[in-house]
Amino acid sequence: MTTTTAPPAARTASGGPDLTRAALSGRRRFSNHLATAAIWFAVLLAVVPLALVTWTVIAKGAGVMSLEFLTGDIPNSYRRVGPGMGPAIVGTLLITGAAALMAIPLGVFGAIYLNEYGKQRPLARTIRLMADVMTGVPSIVMGLFVYLAWVLLVGEQTGFAGALALACLMLPVVIRSSEEMLRLVPDELRQASMALGAPKWRTTLTVVLPAAISGITSGSLLAVARAAGETAPIIIVTGIVFSPNWNLFDGSNTALPAQIFRNASQPFPGAQERAWGAALTLIVIVLGFTIIARYVANRFAIKER
Rank of each mutant, 00 (worst) to 15 (best):
L196F: 08
A278L: 05
A37T: 11
C168Y: 01
I89L: 15
K119W: 12
T71H: 09
K303N: 03
T231S: 07
A258D: 04
F261P: 03
G107T: 09
F69C: 05
G118H: 12
V47N: 00
L129D: 06
W246E: 04
A103Y: 00
L282W: 03
W40E: 00
G197D: 05
G86C: 08
T4S: 06
V208E: 11
W150Q: 00
R79N: 15
T56C: 03
V146C: 00
R294S: 00
Q120H: 14
A227V: 04
A211S: 12
L287M: 12
R299F: 01
F145L: 12
E273S: 13
T2A: 10
G97A: 11
A13C: 01
S243M: 12
V207T: 13
E188A: 12
P7W: 04
I235N: 01
E273A: 15
A59L: 02
A271F: 07
K60V: 01
E179M: 03
V133G: 05
P244Q: 09
A225G: 08
V284M: 09
T217G: 13
T92N: 06
K303H: 10
L94N: 00
P122F: 12
L129P: 09
A124S: 15
Q266D: 14
P105H: 10
A161S: 13
L222S: 06
A228F: 06
F41A: 11
L93A: 10
T204Y: 06
N32H: 10
M130I: 14
R262T: 14
A149P: 03
M85K: 07
A223L: 09
A192K: 05
E116M: 08
Q266R: 13
R305P: 04
A37Q: 06
T54L: 15
W201N: 07
R176I: 10
M194Q: 15
G118S: 07
A38K: 09
G229S: 06
A9I: 04
R128G: 01
E230D: 08
G219N: 07
V133A: 12
G16L: 14
I58R: 09
L152R: 13
L24F: 06
L184Y: 07
A211Y: 05
M85H: 07
W55A: 14
E180K: 03
G162L: 10
G84A: 11
P122L: 13
D18K: 14
T12N: 12
I213F: 10
Y113Q: 03
V64I: 15
A271E: 06
L94R: 04
L196Q: 13
P138Q: 11
A195M: 08
L34A: 12
R202G: 04
Q157N: 12
G91D: 04
R299L: 01
F30K: 01
T238Q: 06
T3N: 11
R11I: 14
L101S: 04
I213H: 13
N247G: 07
N253Y: 04
V47K: 01
A192V: 11
A51I: 08
W276N: 14
V151A: 09
A192D: 03
T126G: 09
G277T: 03
V81E: 15
I260D: 02
P172G: 11
L144K: 02
